[in-house]
Amino acid sequence: MYRWVDHTAEVELEIRAATERDVFADALAALAELLAVEGDATEERRIAVRAPDRPALLAAWLEELVFLAESEGFEPVRLESIAVEGNRLEAVVRGRHGDPPPLVKAVTYHRLTFEPCDSAYCARVVLDV
């Protein structure tokens, strides 16, 4: 489950999910909403990222999706599979080729969190738009 939080200049995303995997899946879904992705998934990308901790891994995950959208026009639709081990994430993302709208410039470390909360996981990330 994710929601957008009011931010004067940028876009702040808050996620609360039952598992770590779902945090990453929700982050993908939020980005797809922001990019207004519509249509069937016809392509696939394998993504592998590393980071020193969970919050940075979430930022790295979103950065990779933003890069693919900007450089290849790859619009993410859904998470096919994901494995998170230690500081490494490997995933297969289903999506489509398009001309994603101009929105996210960068994924910031401002107030970045990803931690257990009340038998779930809570995360927050601010996107520079």
């Binding site: 900007e70 398009g98 001309d99 709208p101 101009p102």
Partner: peptide, 9 residues
């Protein structure tokens, strides 16, 4: 050209 990414930009 305008827009942050995609072919058109």
């Amino acid at each position: 050209p305008a827009g942050s990414g995609g072919k058109s930009a």
